[in-house]
Simulated assay, not measured.
Amino acid sequence: MKLEGILPALITPFDNQGNIDFVALEKVVEKQLADGVHGFAVMGTSGEYYAMNHDERAQVLTFVKKVVGGRVPLMAGTNASSTREVIELTNKAKELGYDNVLLSAPFYALPSNEEMIAHFNAVLDACDVNIVLYNYPIRAGVDVGMEVMEAFQDNARVLGIKESSGDLLRAMDITSTFGSKIQLSCGSDDQALDFFIWGATSWVCGPANFLAPQIVRFYNAFQAGNLQEAQRIIKALFPVMQCLEESKFIQKLKYGCELAGVPGGACRAPLLPLTEQEKVDMKAAFAIAEAV
């Protein structure tokens, strides 16, 4: 798999009783496909995988696979807090037809570099899949850093890394050190233009759940060499990016879907709904992005 283009980090809509809303999920997926996205990352942070049991995660993976029907590539988030559980989830994803998985460091355990390398090797040994590493230290508690990437740079089944540390220097270091051996995917939404300039080939993007038309146009402009247009579009998205990062990221993704005309659904506890003021602020930021 080549990590290429705009790959939404797909949300999971829930109804008011807390059940997965598959009707809403299909509408979200179809809207983004119609808007030209290039693939999906399913059951990542934006999908609230941590609030779901294994059976529910498998249901979502199965459903998205069926709805997409091979139109774009997919990768499954199979993260968990232990190596044994990650292997179980990853083998299940493979059984459901996912050849590529997105994996951060196991959360809460705070593994060392040596332990992370052993963890990813154990998954590779036990599961017939390709891995995209995921560096998100603010949630995982540790950094999937250069030493870990160095250990896997010559392993053809470790495709790349979604870099979400917020450190642009890391993106520069990855491309200059590893070149095409470790494909770079942007995971820091407000740095997307900089990431592409420094060699990223894809953007695993939460805001694409509701801003896919604008984000795809940004990507197409960049690919065509029109940096001025790419900059114009991404600048108009900054108010939304800022609003998302201030608080309640996932709730705002789902409200953004509502503003874009598709049902985003509710979140599961402990996440609380947006206040009326938060909705007002998000709606104002969305209006700026929508007009670009």
Rank of each mutant, 00 (worst) to 15 (best):
residue 26 E to K: 13
residue 53 N to S: 04
residue 20 I to V: 14
residue 47 G to C: 08
residue 106 P to F: 06
residue 128 D to L: 04
residue 130 N to F: 04
residue 139 R to K: 08
residue 215 I to S: 03
residue 184 L to W: 09
residue 119 H to Q: 04
residue 262 V to S: 12
residue 191 Q to G: 00
residue 243 C to N: 15
residue 229 E to C: 00
residue 254 K to Y: 10
residue 89 L to R: 11
residue 112 S to L: 11
residue 3 L to A: 06
residue 139 R to T: 05
residue 194 D to V: 04
residue 154 D to K: 13
residue 145 G to I: 07
residue 37 V to H: 11
residue 242 Q to W: 08
residue 12 T to E: 03
residue 78 T to W: 02
residue 74 L to A: 03
residue 212 A to I: 03
residue 261 G to C: 11
residue 5 G to E: 08
residue 25 L to D: 03
residue 240 V to L: 05
residue 212 A to P: 01
residue 166 G to A: 06
residue 179 G to A: 13
residue 191 Q to Y: 11
residue 19 N to V: 02
residue 270 P to K: 09
residue 184 L to G: 00
residue 202 S to M: 07
residue 129 V to P: 02
residue 29 V to C: 08
residue 16 N to G: 11
residue 263 P to S: 09
residue 146 M to N: 08
residue 16 N to P: 00
residue 95 E to F: 08
residue 236 A to H: 09
residue 127 C to R: 00
residue 114 E to D: 15
residue 159 L to M: 12
residue 28 V to A: 12
residue 141 G to L: 10
residue 169 L to K: 14
residue 287 A to Y: 08
residue 187 G to Y: 01
residue 49 Y to D: 04
residue 54 H to F: 11
residue 151 A to I: 11
residue 274 L to A: 01
residue 219 Y to L: 13
residue 197 I to Y: 15
residue 120 F to D: 03
residue 85 E to H: 12
residue 32 Q to Y: 09
residue 1 M to Q: 05
residue 262 V to C: 09
residue 115 E to Y: 01
residue 97 G to Q: 11
residue 140 A to Y: 05
residue 245 E to L: 14
residue 83 T to K: 06
residue 158 V to H: 08
residue 258 E to Y: 13
residue 230 A to T: 02
residue 156 A to G: 01
residue 269 A to R: 06
residue 135 N to R: 04
residue 245 E to D: 12
residue 196 F to H: 08
residue 256 G to W: 06
residue 264 G to R: 07
residue 243 C to A: 13
residue 153 Q to F: 08
residue 219 Y to H: 14
residue 70 G to L: 10
residue 66 K to S: 14
residue 190 D to Y: 14
residue 69 G to S: 09
residue 187 G to Q: 03
residue 197 I to Q: 12
residue 187 G to R: 01
residue 257 C to N: 07
residue 284 A to M: 11
residue 56 E to S: 02
residue 116 M to S: 06
residue 277 Q to G: 01
residue 180 S to L: 09
residue 128 D to K: 05
residue 99 D to I: 01
residue 219 Y to M: 10
residue 26 E to V: 09
residue 4 E to Q: 15
residue 62 T to N: 12
residue 199 G to T: 13
residue 241 M to N: 09
residue 187 G to E: 01
residue 173 D to P: 01
residue 167 D to E: 11
residue 292 V to D: 12
residue 207 P to E: 05
residue 234 I to M: 13
residue 63 F to P: 01
residue 221 A to V: 06
residue 100 N to T: 15
residue 56 E to I: 07
residue 169 L to C: 10
residue 42 V to Q: 04
residue 135 N to E: 04
residue 148 V to G: 00
residue 139 R to I: 07
residue 241 M to C: 12
residue 209 N to H: 02
residue 99 D to N: 14
residue 121 N to Q: 15
residue 198 W to S: 14
residue 62 T to P: 00
residue 11 I to N: 10
residue 177 T to M: 14
residue 58 A to K: 02
residue 226 N to S: 00
residue 48 E to A: 07
residue 271 L to W: 03
residue 20 I to T: 05
residue 232 R to W: 05
residue 94 K to F: 07
residue 192 A to I: 07
residue 58 A to Y: 07
residue 46 S to G: 10
residue 207 P to T: 04
residue 266 A to Y: 13
residue 112 S to Y: 10
residue 47 G to P: 02
residue 215 I to K: 09
residue 32 Q to D: 15
residue 263 P to G: 06
residue 152 F to P: 01
residue 247 S to N: 14
residue 47 G to V: 12
residue 201 T to D: 08
residue 3 L to I: 12
residue 61 L to E: 01
residue 25 L to E: 06
residue 248 K to D: 13
residue 223 Q to T: 03
residue 243 C to T: 15
residue 124 L to A: 05
